[in-house]
Design a protein around this nucleic acid. Structure first.
Lengths: 241, 241
DNA sequence: TACTTTTATATGTCTGACATAATACAAAAA
DNA sequence: TTTTTGTATTATGTCAGACATATAAAAGTA
């Protein structure tokens, strides 16, 4: 009789580089290294761990790739503050995100725009509102004789909102997600109709701006919800597997 | 007389590996490679580009680190769908995020929880609500004779909300951010008082659950806003540089 | 057919060498 | 003295060739 093996965990199948990476992480923790501290050179690590310089280099290269260290000739390597958005960026550059990830990200955008009302009201400045007014006025002029929807103006308005959040992580997130929106925009089979949401029965950019000027966060949220209605409708009616 | 040099741009200072990485990216684009496709072996790339295998390996290792390719002995390398959260994770593991990034991320959490109301109402199931009820009841029993705030129950409740969003990117984001919340929680000098927000004048988990059962998204948003009030108060009153 | 053994092969690791750029320091010039 | 320029040093960057290891595919066996 064959006994079940499903419960047996595969015995650790780590490459040397994997192990070295773990040791390096321990080393950083134990020595309580901070941003700006420099670390021993490759050869010293190699001797200390008893492996070749090649392996050390590959492990360090991983850290460099995720932005945890930087290296310079002659000066050695220094711990740096990783840019959490950067890798995200790279992954997207390779155009390898699947359908599900793209959908998730699009939903994420809706969530973010719905959720940032309070930050906007807490941090808005006169200059911000003036800038928004310019954007909206420009859009109104350009679109007054057409139903055409300008993605450029759309991005300008919503991008400014992200900027006003004064949260640079959020802001970079938005920058980075723009190509994804374009992709979703371009690949929606139901046509562009859905995207003309700044006209007609929905809340316009001008409406949003007016609320931002003398309304409150709660009102803004509900207005934004209406503004984004076509997107929500599409997203919420799409059955997720 | 000294002429100004400010206009001179530094001439490109890319390492060989940098250049190879760019070429690889071009290669993927030109050949329109998709997830699952396999790519030539290291030696072939080395010969084609006229560089050593070492350089190719380092460039490919970068791709592997960000999850764009996977390698297996003998089978070569295959394009894979990068896990956009994974690198995030790694960066955080190294405990190298600065104060600003942590603050940003904490704000991001507030934004997300405020923004996901519509998704919750669109996707809630009976099973979800039952599960939430269990969590809340457990919390009520444990905390009935104390003002002590249990971070564990807090995480269980809010974590379940993320789960209900049915957006796995969002969900993993939350998993990953938990240590950051703990960090912020542990390092708040004003003490734990602020965090007992599920008692007293604020909206409780039970309130939120009831709204989730027979309320609507708008009501839920405002309730969540009140529920998160202590956090918002702290965040919005902190002047960002 | 189903199973086991062998073989070929691409990645993983090692070694030792040289190239290159950044730094420190000495020498020269102002 | 102060500034500039040359020189030596050094840690990373790149190279070449070898062997180790896992494993997919082929060959052999029942």
């Amino acid at each position: 009789m064959k006994t079940k093996l499903s419960k047996m965990a595969p015995l650790e199948n780590l490459s040397l580089v994997d192990k070295v990476e773990i040791r390096l992480k321990e080393y950083f923790k134990e020595n309580n290294l901070k941003i700006g501290d420099s670390i021993p050179k490759e050869l010293e690590f190699a001797q200390a761990l008893g492996v070749s310089r090649t392996v050390i280099r590959e492990a360090l290269l991983r850290l460099r790739t995720i932005g945890v260290i930087q290296s310079k000739k002659r000066s050695g390597m220094v711990l740096t503050q990783p840019d959490i958005i950067q890798n995200f960026e790279k992954a997207i550059e390779y155009n390898l995100l699947g359908e599900e990830a793209l959908t998730d990200i699009f939903e994420l955008r809706l969530i973010l725009e719905m959720g940032m009302a309070d930050l906007l009201f807490a941090r808005k400045t006169k200059a911000d509102l003036d800038a928004l007014d310019k954007i909206v006025s420009k859009q109104e002029i350009e679109e007054q004789n057409t139903v055409l929807f300008s993605l450029k103006n759309e991005i300008a308005f919503h991008g400014k909102l992200y900027e006003m959040s004064n949260n640079s992580t959020l802001q970079r997130f938005q920058d980075l997600l723009l190509p994804v929106f374009n992709y979703v925009h371009d690949n929606m089979p139901q046509g562009a109709e859905d995207f003309k949401y700044s006209k007609g029965k929905f809340v316009t950019h001008r409406d949003l701006l007016n609320i931002l000027i003398d309304g409150d966060a709660e009102t803004f949220r509900e207005a934004m919800r209406n503004h984004l209605e076509p997107h929500f409708e599409r997203v919420l009616n799409t059955v997720k597997s």
